[in-house]
């Protein structure tokens, strides 16, 4: 049992657990909307486009969370400018606009990394380093998690309706475009929290994998969100234990554990269909 209990006697492991659970809860609960609103590509893009902000924050000595958030804001504005309003007048579809901005911002991040310092110093931005999250960023992750979960609860019926019937959402005056902006804003917040846990490349896994796994067990929204959060927490705990005991990267270990839960859920679904 030492492999199971000893790791938690270290302060950095307990901090990592708290940070991982905050980011995991926000990403997993929101992930159900990301999956069923067919926004997985937007989630993927949001995580990659944090890179230039993270690099600039690292080089300037600022908070990584603030850098990532600023980067995501620029991304949202860029996507909105290219595809917002009468998109066909500007000739750019939603997914094309996301693709252009996402790859452009990621390329900018790589160039900044190349210009600004050694790859070794900055590689934790790509892969995440949950074991070395600063106290300031740790608090940001907790607050981001609380904001995301509070918004999901407060706007539950409006977010739910706009996810399956945009026309009726507009008809009764809620405004589906407004709700889409809210979801994108929440994804941006959750991604900023997730990036520091598992890194730029793997953050979309925190958004999508637990939600996709939970969808194997239920067809109800709220139970699906709760199961997704539970699975994300399981992945965080198991991933941290794996990383500590086998000396593996923590972020990749967490995502690998989430992927294993997905495979297990898929097999369970096949057996119980």
């Amino acid at each position: 049992m030492a492999w199971l209990l000893d790791p938690w006697s270290y302060g950095f492991m307990r901090d990592a657990l708290a940070a991982g659970m905050s980011a995991g809860a926000a990403c997993a609960a929101l992930g159900v909307y990301v999956v069923f609103r067919r926004m997985a590509f937007a989630g993927e893009a949001m995580s990659h486009t944090t890179l230039p902000g993270l690099v600039m924050a690292q080089l300037g000595g600022w908070s990584l969370a603030v850098g990532a958030l600023a980067s995501n804001l620029l991304t949202a504005l860029g996507i909105g400018f290219l595809s917002g309003g009468p998109s066909h007048r500007r000739g750019v579809r939603d997914d094309a606009a996301i693709g252009v901005v996402f790859t452009g911002m990621f390329a900018l991040g790589v160039i900044l990394m190349s210009l600004g310092g050694s790859w070794r110093d900055l590689s934790h931005l790509i892969l995440g380093n949950i074991l070395a999250v600063s106290p300031g960023d740790h608090w940001f992750m907790v607050v981001a998690g609380i904001v995301v979960l509070t918004a999901l609860i407060a706007l539950h019926k409006e977010l739910e309706l706009s996810s399956y019937d945009a026309a009726y959402t507009d008809l009764i005056g809620i405004g589906s475009a407004r709700l889409k902006c809210v979801v994108l804003g929440l994804v941006a917040l959750a991604v900023v929290a997730g990036v520091q846990v598992v890194g730029v490349i793997l953050t979309s896994a925190l958004l999508i994998t637990p939600a996709a796994s939970a969808a194997m067990f239920t067809r109800r929204l709220v139970p699906m969100m709760l199961i997704a959060v539970g699975l994300a927490w399981m992945a965080v705990v198991a991933g941290l234990l794996l990383a500590f005991n086998a000396d593996l990267p923590a972020g990749a270990s967490i995502v690998a554990c989430a992927a294993i839960t997905f495979v297990a859920a898929w097999i369970w679904r096949r057996l119980h269909r």
Binding site: R37, E160, D165, A167, L171, I174, R219
Partner: peptide
């Protein structure tokens, strides 16, 4: 006013029950 769209305009894959769907009529 209530508008019933054609069926293809609704995302039927979204995880919501019949009761919850009908309850949305009361949201306004």
């Amino acid at each position: 006013t209530s508008y019933l769209p054609q069926r293809e305009e609704i995302n039927w894959e979204f995880p919501v029950s019949v009761e919850r769907f009908v309850l949305a009529g009361r949201f306004v």
